[in-house]
């Protein structure tokens, strides 16, 4: 991954491929207004339904949630930012190409899980895999691992919001599934093997 890609890409939200800064700014504002409207509507309905007591209970829950989540989320953002600068996806890609058999699936899963950045970076790596003849088995394993096991997502969202136990459970229940998806893709679509995404 080049420095340019690292500078331009986000963790869970990459800039739109053809979008402009102005439209992103506008979109962000619309999103914030929608979230605020959700809060105001929720508050109004809560007051209507449960009265002042229910409303005040909701405020208590919000304060408790914020006190619990915000320090964790702030820490997780710091960790994710460090992960983003420390990982060298290019070296890891070379590593996967040296592996054979099951180990290739294992490496594709690990690489997918630790690939920082959003869809732009992961899909450009996927394109490299397909172009170098690694095929659907590895390509699908990699991209499925990126989407469902992304370390940055686990750190920023799973752990702070759902706790370590639930995050570990999701990881344990699913770490082997990207390989299964890859093998299934090879079995079902192997004959239509592609060397590029389009």
């Amino acid at each position: 991954m080049t420095k340019q890609q690292q500078t331009d890409e986000g963790f869970d939200k990459d800039p739109p491929v053809t979008g402009k800064k102005k439209s992103r700014f506008k979109k962000r504002h619309i999103e914030m207004i929608a979230y605020a409207a959700f809060g105001v509507a929720g508050g109004g309905y809560c007051y209507y339904l449960k009265g002042a007591e229910g409303f005040s209970m909701a405020i208590d829950v919000q304060v408790e949630m914020m006190a619990g989540m915000l320090p964790r989320i702030t820490l997780a953002f710091g960790i994710a930012a460090l992960l983003w600068v420390l990982l060298d996806a290019e070296k890891l890609k070379e590593l996967i190409q040296k592996q054979r058999g099951v180990m290739q699936l294992v490496y594709a899963t690990i690489l997918g899980a630790i690939t920082p950045g959003g869809p732009t970076s992961s899909f450009s790596i996927l394109n490299l895999f397909l172009a170098s003849g690694l095929g659907y088995v590895i390509g699908i394993t990699y991209i499925t691992a990126w989407s469902m096991l992304g370390v940055q997502r686990i750190l920023i969202w799973d752990m702070p919001l759902l706790g370590i136990d639930q995050a570990s459970l999701r990881f344990l229940a699913g770490f082997w599934l990207p390989s299964l998806a890859g093998l299934l893709a090879g079995w079902l679509f192997g004959k239509q093997q592609a060397t590029s995404l389009k």
Binding site: Y35, G42, K50, F55, A58, I59, V61, Q62
Partner: peptide
Amino acid sequence: LVIIGTGFLLQI
């Protein structure tokens, strides 16, 4: 903002 909305949602 989402936490604020969620807090109300939990009550509703």
